[in-house]
Computed example of a mutant assay.
Amino acid sequence: MSASGCNVITGARQSKLDEVLNGFGIDRNEDELYIVCNDDRLFSAINMLMQGMATVDDLFFTARDNVRSYFSEDVGRWFEKHGVRNLPNILMRGQSGFETKFDFVIPKTPNTAPERFIKTVSTPSEQSVVNALFGWGDIKNARGDDSAFYLFLNKRNCGDGNIDESLLRACHNYDVRPVVWGQDEQSVLKELAA
């Protein structure tokens, strides 16, 4: 991990790293991440390891001095401030049999709002959006039509402060609502709080 140019094994980042790894069932031995499993769980374990590695990679970007808090925590505080009830850090098994971790799930409100799944991406990239879209596609097929997905994208960690339009188009192509943090979150507040 230190090869990435960031020493996350100190202070608050140590706690966050441990939280991320525990959430995916990943063990760590110094710079090595791994999951111990039996043969019948191998593919699911590989999937969780890859999701966890992508999340840890996203954590490395928080090493920049200008980032004072973690993006998913910012979104969680925003939900709390606006009374958006949610369940944090939920694992869901999709049609493939693989599990996908969502940062938040907002339960369905009968006759008002569908079940809403939320992922946060601190440093938006093509790969992070593709990973989120795959996870959503897998879950959506298993959950049915009465569910929606919101992908919160942090524009502060983009070089020019803007999200690449191709990432937003990809979201729309999969009926995913991209929410550009610092720009769009107020526009989805009513539907998330319903």
Rank of each mutant, 00 (worst) to 15 (best):
E185S: 15
P110V: 14
E30D: 14
G159Q: 11
P107S: 15
L192G: 07
F61H: 05
V105W: 09
A193T: 12
V176S: 09
F152Q: 02
D184K: 15
G83K: 04
N131C: 00
R13C: 00
R13V: 02
I139T: 07
V129F: 07
F79V: 03
G83M: 02
A113V: 05
L167E: 01
R28K: 15
V36L: 04
L189K: 13
G135L: 02
D57M: 11
L168Y: 06
L33M: 13
G159F: 13
G25D: 07
L42M: 13
G94L: 08
A45T: 09
Y34S: 00
F149H: 11
C6D: 02
F43I: 03
S128A: 10
I9A: 03
Q14G: 02
F149V: 10
E99A: 11
L17V: 14
G135D: 07
L168Q: 04
S166G: 05
R143G: 06
D138H: 04
N47Y: 09
L168M: 10
F61T: 04
T100R: 09
Q51M: 08
S44D: 08
K140Q: 10
N38G: 13
L133T: 10
K101P: 07
F61K: 02
K119P: 03
E126V: 12
H172A: 11
N38C: 12
E30S: 08
A113T: 09
S166I: 11
C6P: 00
V129A: 08
P178E: 12
G137I: 01
T10I: 12
N86Y: 05
K81I: 00
A113K: 06
V75A: 02
D39V: 09
N111I: 13
C158S: 15
L17Q: 08
A142V: 08
